[in-house]
Design a protein around this nucleic acid. Structure first.
Lengths: 336, 336
DNA sequence: GTGAAAGCGCTAACAG
DNA sequence: CTGTTAGCGCTTTCAC
């Protein structure tokens, strides 16, 4: 789109394109080019408002200075905030970011990875769907910088930055037990997704460690794609069947929100009727009366670690694999 | 990054690069290339997992198949949802999107426009900051496809897709008046930003049309960058001074959220103590008891219109200017 | 200190 | 029906 090219500048200045190229890339140092020429060329560049063509440069150098960001759903607050930070750090480092959402759809995720490759991104940060394992392996084999985010594939030697989900669920469950709750229900999505499994494991381990009956019937699992109404109904049925339940632990914030809806619909109050806690923080949880106790993710930190990991992988090749599990934070409010 | 090139394929297949190029671009139609060759080349392409280099193609064709999206803040639910839809439609049309947030900072916005240009985007959707007018004019002069979003510059002949903010505020205020409120406070950000001004105008016009005193003291204006605490204090001071206020109309959802905080902090209930409404919907508003009446934006529609407008501008040059004001929707719940 | 020239991978005249 | 060739705008040896 930029009309004027390197050549135009060179012609105008009466020098060669090499000289101009050297100057715009600040390689005019160590006396290579005379100050007078540098000044003259720079003046013309400014006058003509010349901008080097990034695409041509990319073609020549083999670097696109673009990274790809593939999240589950950019319209979700968690991922949106993550994206913001990633974008910021990337821009500061001279990288653009192109992004997309998978909506947890394997097919779509696969196409997006493909699309990013086509665009010659220098690296990808990705919230993988469960079926993406082989594609990730392929990427690794081709030595493309990749960092997994939010979830990972245990056993796969790939960089990742995730929350310590096990610890989060373990701590929250222990906290509930210490407060005297004896029959804590865990409401979650039935998923092979690593992060959700870890949460379930943390919950179960805490029950075991505190010698509480670990009755399977106290975990309610939804499949990912049933409607809000169906979830509401399932919660009701579950709670009718398990009268002894005294606390509700939701494994994600969108489930927690549905939990809130259930409570208000049935005129139940917390913590009187049920102790109520959720994984992931949310604006709603802060402002409700009572405010809801959650295990929160250090969102900015997660994002920073992820983008820094990717940048590191891009810059120096043989850094091996960067794997980080960040600690969650228990935010005790008044719902339990 | 892709190892194999067009040339490799050509050599392997024993044909020229032209032939391969024609085939991968589906220009092998009307009997140009023999089916046998097409089949053979395609087979090799598949075997070698060849992917044409987008950058080289872009350099050659002058098209980057990338559009830029510059929003105020991608971590904000409204913009995040917008982005999701834009991304979807763009991808469906073969476009990638690179994005960034301005945080309402003129300097940053300017740099982002520059960055997008460098990246040779084919068009930009932008939520302009107030100081970006001249940059937008420059873009237009250079005939680059641009569509303004969420706000625009009255008088500037540039494409835009925005909400009819005036109507939204007018309708909501009228609704409040019809419900019997006589002293409606309008709480907003002091901003030359067109969209906020329109809302203020709508509010004032409604008061005028219903012959209600349009006392300036009933509008509370914050500057954009004061803290939450300061806003809370200012609301308190304002309400102490204006005892007759019987309804609160917040001009954006993040202001509305602070309003909710104010109400709970002071143990005020709605609509008993104050009728309470807000511009823009939000999850919190839906789940609060009582749920909050809002004027909502048709988010998906806004996004679709914006990206379609941009795509239109990109495809056919002389379509002139596309300007759309979409109607808001009053969602009456129980807070007024 | 500076320039000539090759070439990144692809497309598109044009030629046959 | 298929091939030759000239660039797109830039970086980078290598030569002077």
């Amino acid at each position: 789109m930029a009309r004027v090219s390197l050549k135009d500048i060179a012609k105008e200045a009466g020098v060669s394109v090499t000289t101009v190229s050297l100057i715009i890339n600040n390689k005019s140092q160590n006396g290579r080019i005379s100050p007078a020429v540098v000044a003259r060329v720079n003046k013309i560049i400014k006058e003509k408002n010349f901008r080097p063509n990034t695409i041509a440069r990319s073609l020549r150098t083999g670097k696109s200075t673009t990274i790809g960001l593939i999240v589950e759903d950019i319209s979700n607050h968690f991922f949106a905030t993550i994206s913001k930070t990633i974008e910021l750090v990337a821009n500061d480092n001279g990288y653009k970011v192109i992004y997309a959402s998978t909506d947890n759809d394997n097919q779509k995720a696969r196409e997006l990875v493909e699309m990013m490759q086509l665009q010659q991104v220098e690296g990808i940060i990705i919230t993988p769907t469960i079926g993406l394992k082989s594609d990730i392996e392929e990427l690794i084999k081709q030595e493309r910088p990749v960092v997994l985010f939010d979830r990972y594939f245990p056993g796969l030697s790939v960089s990742y930055v995730v929350l310590d989900n096990f610890k989060g669920a373990y701590d929250m469950t222990s906290h509930l037990i210490k407060k005297g709750y004896k029959n804590i229900a865990f409401i979650t999505i039935a998923s092979e997704m690593n992060q959700l499994q870890q949460r379930l494991n943390g919950y179960e381990q805490a029950l075991n460690d505190h010698h509480l009956a670990n009755s399977a019937s106290l975990v309610l699992e939804f499949s990912y794609d049933i409607s809000r109404e169906e979830k509401l109904k399932a919660i009701n049925k579950f709670l009718q069947k398990n009268k002894k339940v005294d606390a509700l632990f939701f494994s994600t914030n969108y489930l927690g929100i549905i939990g809130v809806e259930y409570m208000t619909n049935h005129k139940l109050t917390m913590p009187k009727d049920y102790g109520f806690v959720s994984f992931d923080d949310h604006e709603l949880f802060k402002f409700l009366k009572p405010a809801i106790t959650v295990v929160a993710q250090p969102i900015e930190l997660l994002a920073t670690e992820a983008i820094n990991a990717l940048l590191t992988l891009i810059k120096k090749k043989n850094v091996g694999v960067i794997q980080k599990k960040l600690p969650p934070k228990l935010i005790v409010r008044a719902s339990e």
